[in-house]
Amino acid sequence: MPGPQADPDRRWLDLELEDDFDEELEQEIDDSRIPAALQELRQVRKRSSITRETYFRELLRLQAELVKLQDWVVYRGLKVVVLFEGRDSAGKGGVIKRITQRVNPRVCRVVALPAPSDRERTQWYFQRYVAHLPAAGEIVLFDRSWYNRAGVESVMGFASEAEVEDFFRDVPEFERMLVRSGIVLVKYWFSITDEEQQLRFLMRIHDPIKQWKLSPMDLQSRVRWEQYTRAKEAMFERTNIKEAPWYIVEGNDKKRARLNCISHLLTLIPYETVPQQPITLPERVFDPNYERRTLPAELYVPERY
C-alpha cells in the first residue's frame, strides 16, 4: 500500500495528465460546436462511427508513436516531406494539428505558403517550395503544395493551359529528383463528398471564430465543384508515380480520417525506439546571500480567472 505521502504526488500527476488531455478536448469541442443558425442541420450530419473514448485513446497512442518517429528521423538524419492536398474544408488542417500537437516544432514544421508574390511569379515554378525542403533530421508538412498548379491555378485560370501542361510534364521528374536526393516524399489527398463540404462551409459562414477559414477561392470551389473533380482526376492520372504515389484519405468522418492518416504515415517510415540516456533532474543551487527582489505590481498580468 502506498504511504500517505503518495496521494498528493499522485494527484499532481493526474492534474498534469488532465491538462495534457484537455488540449485535445478543447479542439474536439470546437469541432463539434454548431452555431444557432445551423441547429436544424444537427440531424443531417451523421455522428462519427468511432466513440470519443476510442478516438482519444487511439489518438494519444498514435501521437506517442509520432514522437518516436520524430526521434528516429533526428537520430538517422532522415529528410521527410508530407504533402496534404484536397478540397477546401476536407480536413487537412485538422490532421496536421494532431500530427504536430506533441512533437518538436524544430523537427516537424508546417509550410502553408500564401499566393505567390509578383517576384515569385517570375521564378521557376518549384523554386519557392524548394526553399522549404527539409535538411537532415527534419519533417516538413506542406499544407497545400506545388499541386496548387494542378488544382486552384488550373481551375481558376491563374495558370495557362501551357503552364499546367509544363507542370504535369515536370512534376514527376521533380519528385523523382527529390526521392533520389534522399527525401521521403508522401502525398495525401483528403476526399469529402459534395454534401459534407456544403455543411462545413455553412459552419464557417455562421461561426464567427471560423469565418477566417473561408476565402473567396473557397466559395468559388463550390461553384466549380465538377471542374475541380476533373482537375483532380487529371492530377492522379499524371502524377501518381511509383516513387511518390498518392494516398487518398476518406475525410467525411473527421475522427476516422485523422486516425487513419496518422496510422498510415507511421507505416511508411520504418522506425525504431532511439536509445536515450537516462535523465536526472539536478538539484537546485541555493545562494544564502541572494534575496529575491519585489517586482512592481504593474508588471503582472491581472488574474481575471
Rank of each mutant, 00 (worst) to 15 (best):
A36G: 11
A37S: 12
A37T: 09
A37W: 03
L38D: 10
L38C: 14
Q39K: 15
Q39N: 14
E40K: 14
E40G: 13
E40V: 11
L41Y: 03
L41W: 05
R42D: 12
R42A: 14
Q43M: 13
Q43I: 08
V44R: 14
V44I: 12
R45Q: 00
R45T: 06
R45V: 06
R45H: 07
K46Q: 15
K46W: 03
K46M: 15
R47W: 02
R47C: 07
R47T: 10
S48N: 00
S49C: 11
S49P: 01
S49N: 08
I50G: 00
T51V: 09
T51A: 15
T51N: 14
T51H: 15
T51F: 13
T51S: 15
R52V: 12
R52G: 11
R52H: 15
R52L: 14
R52P: 08
E53I: 11
E53A: 13
E53Y: 13
T54I: 05
T54C: 05
Y55R: 13
Y55T: 13
Y55G: 08
Y55I: 12
F56S: 11
R57A: 11
L59F: 04
L60N: 02
R61K: 08
R61Q: 08
R61H: 04
L62K: 07
L62R: 08
L62T: 01
Q63S: 08
Q63F: 02
Q63W: 00
Q63K: 11
A64R: 15
A64H: 13
A64L: 10
E65A: 09
L66G: 07
L66Y: 07
V67Y: 06
V67M: 13
Q70D: 06
D71I: 00
D71V: 04
D71A: 05
D71K: 05
D71P: 01
W72N: 13
V73M: 04
V73C: 03
V74T: 10
Y75L: 04
Y75S: 04
R76N: 06
R76A: 05
G77L: 08
G77F: 04
G77H: 14
L78M: 10
L78F: 08
V80A: 13
V80H: 06
V81Q: 10
V81Y: 04
V81I: 15
V81T: 15
V82Y: 01
L83D: 10
F84G: 01
F84L: 03
F84M: 05
F84T: 01
E85Q: 12
G86K: 10
G86S: 12
R87S: 03
D88K: 08
D88I: 13
D88R: 11
D88L: 11
S89Y: 05
S89Q: 06
A90I: 02
A90C: 09
A90K: 04
A90R: 06
A90S: 14
G91L: 05
G91E: 09
G91R: 06
K92H: 07
K92W: 09
K92Q: 05
G93I: 03
G93Q: 01
G93F: 02
V95P: 10
V95C: 12
V95Q: 14
V95H: 09
V95M: 14
I96Y: 02
I96S: 05
R98D: 12
R98E: 08
R98A: 02
I99R: 01
I99N: 02
